[in-house]
């Protein structure tokens, strides 16, 4: 069952779901609520093919901490007022500005999905991991890829994805 906008608002009012800052009226559709882009982006560094040797990530190797590996492979930037031009075929990591808390009533889980207006330009916001499990709390990490033919400008605070609960 997917909650309607009225049911989402009721759940928020009762404290069963927390979304901070509170979404504007305009952020709701009949069965979802839009979330916005935080100003902090994580950009992958260019990987050099020195002497024919490429770095390979092995997620099954338990000696490698994936988060530490990500830190060493990436650079954090803040989106300026001019926005950030996401090149085509590039993956970046981003976060929603909103903090979500699904710990209060564990019958709720959610799915983060893209927005069709951005998808038409070639922008995807997650890579095969849309489920926000019951018991989650935090800002939602987005895996943003520009599949389109041109760079796409990202601005902080823009509606970037939608949450169904």
């Amino acid at each position: 069952m997917i909650l309607t906008d009225r049911e989402i608002r009721t759940a928020i009012r009762k404290g069963a779901i927390v979304i901070e800052p509170s979404p504007s009226e305009k952020a709701y559709s009949s069965t979802s609520v839009d979330l916005t882009l935080d100003s902090e982006l994580t950009i992958f560094n260019e990987q050099k093919d020195d002497f024919g040797i490429l770095t390979v990530l092995d997620p099954t190797n338990r000696k490698v901490d994936a988060e530490e590996a990500l830190k060493s492979l990436t650079t954090k930037i803040t989106i300026s007022d001019d926005g950030y031009d996401l090149p085509k075929n590039k993956l970046i990591l981003a976060f929603t500005k909103e903090y979500i808390d699904l710990r209060q009533d564990t019958k709720y889980a959610a799915r983060v999905e893209g927005k069709s207006s951005l998808a038409r330009l070639g922008l995807s916001v997650h890579i095969t991991a849309p489920t926000i499990h019951a018991g989650f709390d935090g800002c939602i990490r987005l895996e943003i890829v520009n599949h389109g033919p041109l760079p796409i400008k990202l601005r902080h605070g823009m509606p970037i994805c939608q949450l169904s609960i």
Binding site: D65, E67, E68, L70, G138, C139
Partner: peptide, 29 residues
């Protein structure tokens, strides 16, 4: 263990019976 990728996140270690596991959390958790 350390700060996460985002300012809201923290990386912790969970001591399981099979060894330590890394876990990213919101700092408020």
């Amino acid at each position: 263990i350390s700060e996460g990728l985002h300012r809201s996140e923290v990386i912790v270690s969970v001591h399981t019976t099979g060894g330590d596991e890394g876990l990213v959390l919101d700092r408020r958790s």
